[in-house]
């Protein structure tokens, strides 16, 4: 079964069509890298999937259950708030700018949602958090505040925070774009480890080496459309579309 199915999704901001008929099926354990020039709609796509932004047309299903579906006349209808809450909980998201809670310690950042949203028992939430901190290599930063961390450490905390809700799929929105170049490695390593554990991941990224090495599938988007997709070997080694060639030519130069 597909973890995520996006069908003919379109989105406009005013007159600007940021997404045009996007269709993607994501299988369990699949790692998909979405690449493309800025303004191609990659980030908007992620934001539509997790409903930070509502779509205009199309449908989105998570584990086979509709978050937004098309009625008989083809209009997109969102499911009930209650159903949407359940479906959104299956998704974790990591932002370009981390968006950690600055007034809370690393530990408190991670246990916030388990405690507030899932009514978890504090002790259990903390022990889960400690395991996640070990996983992202930040056990020693448990009681630090975000302002005391480097960008790479912040992003690793943000990943742990998303994982604490035990999502079925992780969405990464340019997770290394706000980092100094020497700090991207530590974040990409954590993501690679996740991929090796068969976490389903949708990664919007400019890190072509990561996409090539870790992704099962690469999707190239431009101007709101999927131009080309395939295995990293196909897309990077033998791109068929001139726009893909032009983009890769520029970025891999």
């Amino acid at each position: 079964m597909n973890i995520l199915s996006i069908n003919n999704v379109s989105k406009k901001f005013g007159d600007l069509e940021v997404l045009k008929n996007i269709t993607i099926d994501v299988a369990e354990g699949e790692v998909i890298a979405i690449i493309g020039p800025s303004g191609s709609g990659k980030s908007t796509l992620l934001r539509c999937i997790i409903k930070l932004v509502n779509i205009d047309k199309g449908s989105i299903e998570i584990e086979g259950k509709p978050m937004v579906y098309r009625d008989t006349e083809g209009n997109s209808i969102y499911s009930s708030d209650k159903d949407i809450r359940v479906l959104r909980k299956k998704m974790g998201m990591v932002f370009q700018n981390f968006n950690l809670f600055p007034h809370k310690s690393v530990l408190e950042n991670i246990i916030e949602a388990p405690l507030t949203v899932n009514n978890a028992i504090r002790k259990e939430a903390e022990s889960t958090a400690d395991k996640l901190l070990a996983k992202v290599g930040l056990s020693d930063k448990r009681n630090s505040f975000p302002c005391e961390l480097s960008g790479g450490q912040k992003q690793r905390v943000a990943i742990a925070r998303a994982l604490a809700m035990n999502p079925a799929i992780m969405l990464f929105d340019e997770p290394t774009s706000a980092l100094d170049p020497e700090l991207t490695g530590e974040v990409l390593r954590v993501m690679k480890a996740l991929a090796e554990e068969r976490m389903t991941m949708l990664v919007v990224t400019h890190e072509m080496a990561f996409a090539r090495e870790v992704a099962d599938r690469v999707i190239f988007m431009d101007l709101g459309e999927i131009i080309e997709q395939g295995s990293p070997k196909e897309v990077f080694g033998n791109p068929t579309h001139p726009r893909t060639k032009a983009f890769l030519g520029q970025i891999l130069r």
């Binding site: 997790i50 930070l52 809450r85 959104r88 909980k89 998704m91 974790g92 998201m93 932002f95 700018n97 968006n99 950690l100 809670f101 916030e112 949602a113 507030t116 949203v117 899932n118 943000a158 925070r161 998303a162 809700m165």
Partner: peptide, 12 residues
């Protein structure tokens, strides 16, 4: 705004 967004995607 990012504070609202991260709280939102965490389910708060």
């Amino acid at each position: 705004r990012g504070q609202y967004e991260s709280a939102d995607v965490l389910g708060l």
